[in-house]
Amino acid sequence: MTPAPARLIPTSARPLLGLTVMVVEDSRFASEALRQMCLHGGARIRRADCIASARRHLAAYFPSVSIVDMGLPDGDGAELIAEIRQRCGDLAPVIATSGDPDRELPARRAGAHDFLPKPIASLGLFEQVILRHLPDSARPKGPRILRQDLPMPDRAALRDDLDHAERLCRGEPDTEMRTYLGAFVAGVARCAEDEPLARAADDLPATAGSGALRQLQALLKDRLRKETRAPV
Rank of each mutant, 00 (worst) to 15 (best):
R55E: 13
P93V: 07
S66D: 12
L17I: 03
G99C: 06
D149A: 04
E32I: 02
I145Y: 07
M70H: 01
L19P: 02
K118C: 13
G182P: 07
R159G: 02
S64C: 12
D114L: 12
G182E: 08
R167A: 05
E193N: 15
M70N: 00
A96L: 00
A121F: 06
R47H: 10
Q215M: 15
A183M: 09
H133C: 03
I9G: 10
S31G: 13
H164L: 13
F62T: 15
R132C: 14
L34E: 08
L116K: 06
G42Q: 10
A165I: 05
G211H: 07
A13M: 05
T175C: 06
T175F: 09
A121M: 07
D154Y: 05
S98T: 07
L80V: 01
E127Y: 04
P106R: 12
P140V: 10
C50S: 15
G99N: 06
I130T: 03
P231L: 12
F29R: 01
M152F: 08
I130K: 02
A192V: 10
L91S: 09
E79A: 03
E172I: 11
P101K: 14
D163Y: 15
L162A: 03
F62E: 15
K221R: 15
K141G: 15
V68S: 01
D102M: 12
R147W: 14
I67Y: 00
F126K: 00
D160V: 13
V24L: 02
D160R: 11
P205W: 03
C50W: 02
M70G: 00
L150F: 09
C38K: 14
P151R: 02
R190I: 09
G75H: 12
F115K: 06
V232M: 15
D114A: 15
P140L: 11
V185Y: 03
Q86R: 05
V94S: 01
G75F: 08
H164Y: 10
R44P: 00
P196G: 11
P106A: 07
H133Y: 04
S31H: 09
R55I: 08
L220D: 00
G71L: 03
H57L: 10
A208P: 00
S66M: 06
D202A: 08
A186P: 02
R46M: 10
